[in-house]
């Protein structure tokens, strides 16, 4: 078990290096000179310009800059934004917003997704099944931003059921509507995954055996089928938590939530490289950690899987 975790951690090293380097190079390729942007309209004296370039290490080769950045990362230093704020403190303020949003979405997709999937799967071919299948396909087909601002208009502005923008009402009220929209896509996938998995498992031999033993249907579903069917769903849910955090850019924009996604978006627009790199690196680390946890939980859920 521990050897497995250690091996996975070692495997993560090249991925972390590769991904962060990729982001670093991409951000480096952003057009425009960030130092000139920093100066605004006024022409900057050459000496100040050089000093600033030196301060942000922009006068060094790319690889050296990246190495320096990595070293800082090991000390928990995500770098400094172009306004002189540390990226860590910037993330700390916006992090809670995104975490609350992602968690709301996650709880929503977990609860509703599994419930709908089980309901549909147990009545395969029935009305509920058709409704769930067509409903989820529809949710997958409509772009999330259209869903987002339509919901904002209908449920927020017209019906007044939810706050439309900002986080003034705190958790959970302010996060309910954006959370549901953010989670809707994964909800659709989870419902379908649960349904398919359940339908397949209901035809398994052990279900027939349990039936022959005279076990009540409820017990068969809850104790036997569901446990087996939920394995792929748990995998999906785990990896999705990372995706939700990263994918909040659009929803945070629509509902004006000052989270990490919005910070990244703003940073890309003003070409604030250190912020983009810092937050992206952070997101990548979370994503990889989520993957690792999923791998470990996977083995606990399915004893057939052995860690070598």
């Amino acid at each position: 078990m521990w050897r497995f975790v250690l091996r996975r951690l070692l495997q993560m090293v090249p991925v972390v290096l590769g991904t962060t380097f990729l982001i670093y190079v991409l951000v480096f390729a952003l057009p425009g000179d960030p130092i000139r942007v920093l100066g605004g309209d006024k022409p900057m004296p050459p000496s100040v310009y050089e000093a600033l370039r030196h301060h942000y290490h922009l006068d060094e080769p790319l690889v050296v800059q990246y190495g320096r950045y990595l070293l800082g990362l090991f000390r928990g230093d995500f770098g400094e934004t172009l306004n002189g704020q540390s990226v860590s403190s910037l993330m700390a303020s916006s992090w809670t917003v995104t975490a609350q949003l992602a968690l709301t979405a996650w709880i929503f997709e977990l609860g509703m997704g599994i419930a709908l999937g089980v309901w549909a799967g147990l009545r395969k071919g029935g009305i509920v099944d058709s409704l769930v299948l067509s409903g989820t396909t529809f949710v997958i087909a409509v772009p999330q931003f259209v869903l987002g601002y339509s919901a904002q208009l209908v449920f927020g502005l017209k019906l007044g059921l939810f706050p439309t923008v900002g986080t003034d009402d705190g958790w959970p009220y302010s996060y309910l509507l954006p959370g549901m929209i953010l989670g809707s896509l994964s909800l659709a996938y989870i419902a379908r995954l649960t349904r398919t998995s359940l339908v397949e498992n209901m035809r398994a031999d052990y279900v027939r055996t349990a039936l022959a033993k005279g076990l009540p249907r409820r017990r068969i579903v809850v104790r036997h089928t569901l446990r087996n069917s939920l394995i792929p769903v748990v995998t999906y849910l785990g990896i999705d938590l990372g995706n939700l955090l990263a994918g909040a850019i659009i929803i945070e924009g629509i509902f004006n939530l000052p989270g990490i996604g919005q910070q990244v978006f703003l940073a890309i627009q003003v070409k604030d490289g250190p912020t983009v790199v810092g937050i992206s690196t952070f997101l990548v680390l979370i994503y990889l950690a989520a993957n690792l946890v999923v791998d470990i939980v996977y083995g606990a859920l399915d004893p057939r899987i052995r860690y070598e």
Binding site: V15, G18, L22, I23, G247, I268, L288
Partner: peptide, 24 residues
């Protein structure tokens, strides 16, 4: 496989945002 892992780690929206901003 490691190459796929690396690209997997990069969130798609984020990657596209950065690249497309770099080539306006």
């Amino acid at each position: 496989s490691r190459l796929t892992d690396i690209l997997f780690g990069l969130p798609l929206v984020l990657g596209a945002l950065v690249i497309l901003t770099a080539f306006p």
